[in-house]
Design a protein around this nucleic acid. Structure first.
Lengths: 229, 229
DNA sequence: ATTTTCGTGATACGAACGTATCACAATGAT
DNA sequence: ATCATTGTGATACGTTCGTATCACGAAAAT
């Protein structure tokens, strides 16, 4: 049966299997055999396409980061053509919240990798640690632009606010992940804090694009139940 | 040599050893033999005082939570007699930031446990998941009190702000842990956000107790270097 | 004084894991 | 048509892990 096969594609499939298996069993508990079974191939094949477990893990992380990037881009694109700074930031931050199965796995494994990177220097050297840095730079730039356009409340420091938003989103995500907080409440808290940064929409001319102002929903949902009807 | 021995104390010592070993090797990599070696006892003793690894891990988590609680209390007590709401909140949040070796280990292992709890229901059922809940309730109450005393900026929602602060602190902590952010920058961002919640100090009568207003240090240090001279 | 219980060490066991080896079929090159 | 290369399966190896077993010394109970 051994036809010529696309290595990159094969590796991607196996990485996908790793992500699925790790999402189910936990990254610490997943073994080569689990990945092989999940991918529907033999153990040997996993060994063949990734020489060692460490390389598999590394590639899995990169694969995950790539998929996450695509997800964020898609969300931003879905915010419509030429979205305002707030819409972009909102899409960016919301993409990181574990609201569905896919983003839940993202957050789960990202956190697991982060924990591993504390004691594994090969992982610590990986650029995924620097990804948040890039995200922060992006949000900072966005906020600066918004500040220039007078969209922010006075006295807002774009750099500090950006760092805060990213950390907030990450912290909320973890809260959702461990079941301490619902996805709805996390979103509400996020919206609340965006409202504290962005100037409230003025009631003038054309209807505003974003922020349908569930500012009060924030307090209601902040502690508790999902928004699902 | 076998004199009568205090079980509770012994278990605490072993749990301490577990924490040290896990802080060094990572929670995923620590085994019973590592704990035994770290505690300077035989493998059998670890087995004797904790029947299984799972029980050891569970006890280790509780032990860690206990020590963390003491740390927070000490920080609050160190804020002086009858400290204001802001001082208490500041102490609470700052205690969670990984600024020294001890708090670093706290954050590292807490996060590791949190990740494990996603796939391990025995861990998920553990009350340490609920501890953040209690902290959030405390901060919310504190903020409510402060709001009543007119210490907060108008329009602040105590519940949403409390949730935000806790999540912010957790997120910043993770950033510091993985080396994406320095302890100094995390503290600065935290201070910035507290400044955005609490009313700025009025320049009246007696000198104010807290908040020496390094509000501008926040922007300077937000991206970068430690505060160490 | 004897017996029972408690604390401790040494060592063994079975399972699971990552990795390595061997064999061989299918393909592309010559 | 032959040969080297590539893809794949089956299986074995050595290690490490959590746990279990056995033995024995010291204290407490009788």
């Amino acid at each position: 049966m051994p036809r010529r096969v696309d290595h990159a594609e094969r590796r991607a499939e196996i990485a996908e299997a790793l992500v699925r298996a790790a999402g189910r069993l936990g990254l610490h508990a997943v073994g080569m055999r689990d990945v092989a079974a999940e991918a529907g191939v033999s153990l040997r094949l996993v060994q063949y396409y990734f020489e060692s477990k460490e390389k598999l893990l590394l590639f899995g992380l990169q694969h995950l980061a790539g998929r996450f990037g695509e997800r964020v881009s898609a969300r931003i694109a879905a915010a419509g053509p030429d979205p305002g700074p707030r819409a972009v930031i909102e899409a960016l931050l919301a993409a990181a919240l574990p609201v569905d199965a896919e983003s839940r796995t993202f957050h789960h494994l990202y956190t697991a990798y982060a924990v591993l990177s504390v004691t594994d220097e090969a992982l610590a050297a990986q650029p995924f640690i620097k990804d948040p840095d890039a995200a922060e730079a992006t949000v900072t730039a966005l906020l600066r632009r918004a500040a220039g356009a007078g969209l922010l409340r006075p006295g807002t420091d774009p750099s500090a606010a950006a760092a805060g938003l990213l950390a907030l989103s990450a912290g909320l995500g973890t809260g959702v992940l461990v079941g301490q907080r619902t996805a709805g409440s996390a979103t509400a808290v996020l919206t609340y804090h965006l409202d504290r940064i962005f100037q409230p929409a003025e009631e003038s001319g054309r209807p505003r694009r974003s922020a349908p102002a569930h500012a009060d929903a924030a307090q209601a949902a902040s502690r508790g139940d999902t928004a699902t009807p």
